[in-house]
Simulated assay, not measured.
Amino acid sequence: MRIILYTGKGGVGKTSVAAATALKAASEGKKVLVMSTDPAHSLSDAFDEEVGPEPRQMAQGLWAQEMDQSSMIEEYWAEIQNYLTAVFEWQGTTDVAADELARLPGMDELFGLLAVRRHHREGGYDALILDAAPTGETLKLLSLPDQMSWYVEKILPVQRRVASIARPLARRTKALPPLPEDSVFAAGQRFYDALAEVEEVLIDRENASVRLVVNAEKMVVAEARRAYTYLNLYDYGVDAVVVNRLLPETVRDPYFEEWRRAQEHHMRTIRDSFEPIPILTARLFEREMYGLEALSELAGEIFDGADPLEVMFRGETHSIVKRDGGYEVVLSLPFVEKESLELSKRGAELLVSVGSYRRNILLPDSMARLAAAGASFEDGKLYVRLKDAS
């Protein structure tokens, strides 16, 4: 199954782009499901037709779904929720409030990702297009399996043994909170295993891709660059950047000239930051883009005859490895000469120029204090060393 996850800063038009991609693929003979994992569902608005918690056919070969967490709670969270509710009630929380508190923040998006696992296992579609939450929430979710792994592997077994010893005492006294039964620990393990399986599906770069949707605006581009850095760190493949709502060339009113110059400036930043990843563009239309006809027009603008399900880029534009007490940023730059290299670093930004090739790389925040300590070429790759200046 081909999986494409669209994310971007809120308001950039990622729902319309996701729906347009699915419609384009379906028009070319594929069986496609577009699914929203964002709690603020917008697919119904994009199609101008009601979309429910179960897949609903919107056009020939195209289904849409807006996730409802209630169907997923019973499968993945019921045992844990019952225990958490008991703990909150032991603390004096009312029944209704305890039940609500047991549904942790972010559960909607999380269960949306678990629905990816279900559809992947069932294999009922050729492609799954995900309209994900804005970048910040999506990055937290995609990094969750890595963050949970140490706890599940190291701490959970110890807690399970301690609970089994202390549980008889807790049952005899009300001074201790209820301790989880073995079934709760088992449910936690199943929950983690399901998340880890989703991660395996989404980091398969031959079949799964992330696409960043941006507008040519300063804050939007900055967030997209940051998102790309962290997606790389967690091994998720970005195969395209979609720049949405560009002013058309036909608009030449002086009122828009300053806006046009700003967009041109931000487009240069986008190219410097993301190439050789393909950069797809769509103009700002003269109307709102909802309904099948408008979405089809948007898809034609973005893909311009290309296959929307193609893996448009494989690999990374750069990678970061830890080495010799510091880090190396590795860029693939075949056929360059060392003499043409220019290198500078400002805070968390690394700027690399080789002849006409220019890259503006946003590093993780933890590397902002490091200084560039040299560079070298080896087998067509540029290695930029970063070390603590002190």
Rank of each mutant, 00 (worst) to 15 (best):
238 V>Y: 03
238 V>R: 02
239 D>R: 02
239 D>E: 04
239 D>L: 02
239 D>V: 08
239 D>T: 06
239 D>N: 06
240 A>H: 03
241 V>M: 04
241 V>T: 06
241 V>A: 02
241 V>L: 07
241 V>P: 05
241 V>F: 06
242 V>W: 01
242 V>Y: 01
242 V>D: 00
243 V>F: 02
243 V>P: 02
243 V>W: 00
243 V>S: 01
244 N>W: 00
244 N>H: 05
244 N>M: 02
244 N>K: 05
244 N>Y: 04
244 N>F: 05
245 R>Q: 15
245 R>Y: 15
246 L>F: 11
247 L>P: 01
247 L>Y: 03
248 P>V: 01
248 P>H: 03
248 P>E: 01
249 E>I: 08
249 E>C: 08
250 T>S: 13
250 T>V: 14
250 T>P: 06
251 V>E: 10
252 R>V: 15
252 R>K: 13
253 D>T: 07
253 D>E: 08
253 D>R: 01
253 D>C: 11
254 P>Y: 09
255 Y>A: 14
255 Y>L: 11
257 E>C: 07
258 E>N: 14
258 E>C: 09
258 E>H: 15
259 W>F: 15
259 W>Y: 14
260 R>T: 08
260 R>Y: 07
260 R>K: 11
260 R>E: 07
261 R>S: 12
261 R>L: 14
262 A>C: 12
263 Q>P: 13
263 Q>A: 08
263 Q>Y: 07
264 E>N: 11
265 H>L: 15
265 H>Q: 15
265 H>N: 15
265 H>A: 12
266 H>Y: 14
266 H>F: 12
267 M>D: 00
267 M>F: 05
267 M>H: 04
268 R>H: 11
268 R>K: 12
268 R>G: 12
269 T>L: 04
269 T>R: 00
270 I>Q: 01
271 R>F: 02
271 R>D: 01
272 D>S: 12
272 D>W: 12
272 D>I: 09
273 S>E: 03
273 S>I: 03
273 S>M: 04
273 S>L: 05
273 S>Q: 03
274 F>L: 10
275 E>C: 05
275 E>M: 10
